[in-house]
Design a binder for these strands. Structure first.
Lengths: 232, 232
DNA sequence: AACAAGCGTGACGGATTCGTCACGGTGACA
DNA sequence: TGTCACCGTGACGAATCCGTCACGCTTGTT
């Protein structure tokens, strides 16, 4: 369904990934030479890039910076691959804005899931500055929430959390997904922190807090329409 | 250039406004009856609504709430008119998300300026989640700024301030405009506060802080390209 | 009914953020 | 050159925000 560019010099890994992705319905393009990345990206216009940092010759980090520096390639989401234990300090300096990253060894399944998550996130969000869901209307531009027409002030995290939940109102968001989407992949906040923010959100929403539903054992979900609850 | 709906029962005022606006190249449509507002809006699809709160019969505030409650009309910016000294408590409860408001008496010129400001703000922003200006790339979605490809964390106010400045890089933003755009029309922060935030922004930007230029006696401006400064 | 795992909640400290003020510097203009 | 309005800056206190923890409740399972 989506065109994915894989930059990876170890051909067996590249093939494994490619195979797995095409089996899931994606179109995978592999290149092993770092120097070909920019031309390939411009020519192929992939929807997402999987970039191994450990490349012979050109440093993967340099490639990444170049991708971000060019207006044409900057918006393309990138998932970064690194060998385990490799250059943690580099990664630390990698606030650069990768959309996710994965340490080797990893299962192709895991990579596929990450790719799906990133694609879902990016596709839904781009070019929509307002989200309307029943009584809720999110105004990204002003970071405000309108509930039944009245404005509510949310903090940065609360807003991001609610936005993430509302973007896919049908979907159930796992705790891990929410932590990654709201706090970023490299953060390490406690799972209880998420609960606290969910609670604060519900508080601010008042009775409408019921639209945020707990899916026990999994995570949370935003429901536009409440099931008619029978009064006690 | 833009279609503007004016809801005002005093016909002389409505005419005055209408005349002035059409002279500036806008198309003004006047209605005096509150009940006609919703149908008129749906039929005419104005780009902006000027709404007098003091209407016979239906309360202007109710109209406003209805406009915001309906998905089709909620995104349309509204400028609210009130008589001086009128119902300050109502206005206080009016966090509702009007885009600006004006107390009578006001000059048509003033209204025109406000309308222009709102239109400029809204038009530029809608449907653009990323702004690229030279070395700067603003990522609204994640509230991040990329300078030469490296991410910088900004606070909410800093981000909004920079966004406002960057949206119109050619324009000079007056202090009043910035205060209104960033803090909202009903806030009353000191003008020195703006300076402080400008300073903090420049600090975070480092040498690139020079892109924020002071226009003495007026305000500030974002310049994508720096004039080649001759070394001392 | 008993248990364990998952979740909600209140409280707390630390960190960040924000607005304001006083003061000093700087440019414009006579 | 002197004056004045305007702007930059550092410091400070207050408010907010955020992450964590301990504890208790709920839910589902045996």
């Amino acid at each position: 369904m989506s065109k994915i560019l894989i930059v990876e010099d170890e051909s067996d890994i590249a093939e494994l990934i490619s195979l797995h992705l095409s089996r899931e319905g994606h179109e995978a393009i592999c290149i092993g030479n770092g120097l070909q990345v920019m031309p390939a990206v411009l020519a192929q216009q992939p929807e997402i890039i999987v970039l191994d940092l450990m490349l012979p010759g050109l440093d993967g980090l340099q490639i990444f910076k170049r991708l971000r520096a060019d207006t044409r390639t900057a918006p393309i989401p990138v998932i970064i691959l690194t060998a385990k234990g490799q250059v943690t300090d580099k990664i630390a300096g990698l606030e650069l804005g990768a959309d996710d990253y994965l340490t080797k060894p990893f299962s192709p399944r895991e990579l596929y899931l990450r790719i799906s998550a990133v694609l879902r996130r990016v596709k839904k969000v781009t070019h929509v500055s307002e989200i309307q869901r029943g009584r809720f209307m999110l105004d990204r531009k002003n970071m405000k929430l309108f509930l039944d027409g009245t404005a509510l002030d949310l903090t940065t995290i609360e807003f991001k959390l609610l936005t993430t939940l509302m973007e896919n109102d049908t979907a159930v968001h796992s705790r891990a997904d929410l932590l990654r989407d709201v706090w970023g992949y490299n953060s390490d906040v406690a799972t209880r922190t998420l609960d606290t923010h969910i609670k604060r959100l519900r508080e601010k929403l008042g009775a409408a807090g019921e639209h945020i539903v707990t899916i026990r054992g999994t995570g949370f979900q935003f429901q536009t329409e409440l099931p008619a609850s029978q009064p006690a």
